[in-house]
Computed example of a mutant assay.
Amino acid sequence: MAEFVATEIRDAVAIVRIERAARRNALNLQVKTELIAALQAACADPAVAAIVLTGSGGYFVAGTDIGEMATLSPTDHQRLDTDRVFHVVRQSPKPVIAAVEGYALGGGCELALACDLIVAAEDARFGQPEIRVGIMPGAGGTQRLLRAAGRYKALLWTLTGDHIPAGDAYAANLVSRLVPPGDALEEAVRIAAQIATMPPLAVQAIREAMRLGADVPLETALSLERRLFERLFDSADQREGMQAFLDKRAPRYIGR
């Protein structure tokens, strides 16, 4: 039985919630292990089409648990696979949306950045303050910020450790949508539910094109996109979607 992570299913959306509010949902090894199990269960559930990741108590994740991390050696990090949860989020076969209230700092910011989309409250704060405790981001922070916001913003934020107001994060393409405080979860669920109505094979293909195309030459990315596009014409969902459009009715997708 998980102590710090709970899952709620709303129709085709799994809401995975970190519940360690007394520590502002800080990520320790137990939370990471429970989070991995919850995400893997949601991915394996055929009734789930999209996942929303959030926190409790008005916070997303205020960071990695420094009290635990302070004593870890390089070998401990490798042996305990302390960054595995970020890989699980990034490699999820189903879309993952972060619903951010309060703080998403350090490992919490990296956890949000590992998701496909980020919905954030207008008063939320992001940041990579690792430099202030003698280290640096180690689970995607420098590279995600670099690719989304560019070198000059990424260096400013990681070298100072300053918080990034949600409005600035939105302007720098780190946030998909801004909402009033308290509304992040419901908006994330609404978007997830909308994605859940889309043809699953097309959703997978778009995510694959975005993920693999981001870091290759444009011509390579365009070729990948074209192959994925063509492959969808072998699917029943392509035929159903186009016929439904012609018939002026709602499509019924089956993921084949």
Rank of each mutant, 00 (worst) to 15 (best):
L224V: 10
R256P: 08
N25P: 01
G58I: 01
M198E: 12
D45N: 00
I254D: 13
A209H: 06
A166K: 01
G255V: 09
R256C: 10
A6T: 15
A202K: 07
Q238R: 13
G161N: 09
L246K: 12
T160P: 07
A99M: 00
Q143L: 13
V133S: 14
T158F: 03
R147D: 13
Q143S: 15
R249C: 13
P199W: 03
L178A: 08
D81G: 12
A37R: 06
I206M: 04
S235L: 01
Y170D: 01
A205M: 07
R24A: 11
K32M: 11
R252V: 14
V85H: 05
L155N: 09
E110N: 03
I254F: 15
L105S: 11
Q204L: 11
A42K: 00
A38P: 08
K153G: 08
L174K: 07
V13S: 07
A120S: 05
A214G: 09
K32S: 11
A149Q: 02
G55H: 06
E19Y: 08
R132V: 04
D11K: 13
R84L: 08
S235Y: 07
P74V: 00
R190D: 10
E68K: 03
I191V: 15
R17A: 01
E240R: 02
R231V: 07
A112S: 04
A62Y: 13
Q204R: 10
E34R: 02
L155G: 09
E240I: 04
D116N: 05
P46A: 03
Q91A: 12
I18E: 03
I254V: 15
Q204S: 13
M136Y: 12
L145S: 06
A12R: 13
L201A: 07
G182P: 12
V179W: 02
A114W: 02
A47E: 04
A148D: 05
F229A: 04
H163D: 09
L146V: 07
A184P: 14
T75L: 12
V48C: 01
L218R: 04
R239D: 08
Q128V: 10
D81P: 11
Y103G: 05
V89W: 02
L218E: 01
G241N: 00
